[in-house]
Each structure stands twice: as C-alpha cells, then as structure tokens.
C-alpha cells in the first residue's frame, strides 16, 4: 500500500535560540498530517543540508530571527547543491524576522515563500499542501 507522506524538515540556522516559532510551525504541520523532522536550534548550513539528505524530505522550512539570513541562506542552498539536491526539487520556505527588501533576493535564490510575524499556521499548511498537490511526480 503506497503511502506518500509529506516529509518536512524544520530547522533553525544560526545562533539565535528562540525556537518557539519553529516549534509552533512544526506542531501545526504535524497536526495537518505531515511527518515533521525537527532538528533543534543552532544548525549550520551543512547540518541542515545533511539532515535534508538523510531524511529525504520534500519540504524545508527555516526559522530565523537573528538577521543573518542573507548570510546563511545562500550557504544552505549551496550545501544542498553539493549533495545533489537542487532547490527546485524541494519546497523551501522561511519565516521569522526578514525585512521586505530581502524577500525578492531570497525568492531568486529558490525560496518560494517568506512568512513574517503574525502569519497564520493555516496559511503555511495550505501553502505546503497546494505545492504538494501540483508538484511533478518525483523521479525515482
């Protein structure tokens, strides 16, 4: 019986230890029927990419409050690429404190959505589900 679960990695890159938002999102996605791998705080780009590889996730959600996103996110994309994971193979999104001016550059990098403070978890769930419903069939 084939059972195609949506697997999501929720990770906090960088040095800020405020993981309440990440945990709220992780729980909401779990309650929406997804399998959520939560890595905890203070993850390096390599740790995040390696966890994504080992867990073969469909979705990567990053939470960052420290302001280091323009520094860390490109390095995460790079770390994924070196592991043969192209940004368009997975759904990448981020949340936290990210200025408007940075949103377009992050989208150009491969992030499909940036969720700011006050985002409803229902919106994030819908966003992931809509993506999963229209994604091309994955290559084996």
């Amino acid at each position: 019986m084939a059972d195609d679960k949506i697997r999501v990695l929720v990770a906090k890159p960088g040095l800020d230890g405020h993981d309440r938002g990440a945990k709220v999102v992780a729980r909401a996605l779990r309650d929406a029927g997804m399998e959520v791998i939560y890595t905890g705080i203070r993850q390096t780009p390599d740790m995040i990419a390696e966890a994504a590889l080992q867990e073969d996730v469909d979705v990567i959600g990053l939470s960052i409050l420290s302001g280091a996103h323009m520094e860390l996110f490109p390095r995460i994309i790079e770390a994924l690429r070196t592991r043969e994971i192209a940004p368009d193979e997975v759904l990448l999104f981020a949340g936290g404190i990210i200025p408007d001016a940075d949103i377009q550059p992050l989208k150009d990098l491969g992030f499909q959505a940036i969720f700011g403070p006050g985002t409803s978890t229902q919106d994030i769930i819908k966003f992931v589900r809509d993506w999963a419903a229209t994604r091309p069939v994955r290559a084996t």
Binding site: R30, E35, V36, G40, Q43, M47
Partner: peptide, 15 residues
C-alpha cells in the same frame, strides 16, 4: 502526522 525529534539528541553526528 508525526513529529520526529531524534536528530536533536544526535546533532553532532549529522556531519
């Protein structure tokens, strides 16, 4: 759904 949290205890082994 499920929350899979075992990696938290093994972060140093990830790399």
């Amino acid at each position: 759904g499920a929350l899979l949290g075992d990696r938290i205890r093994m972060q140093d082994l990830t790399s």
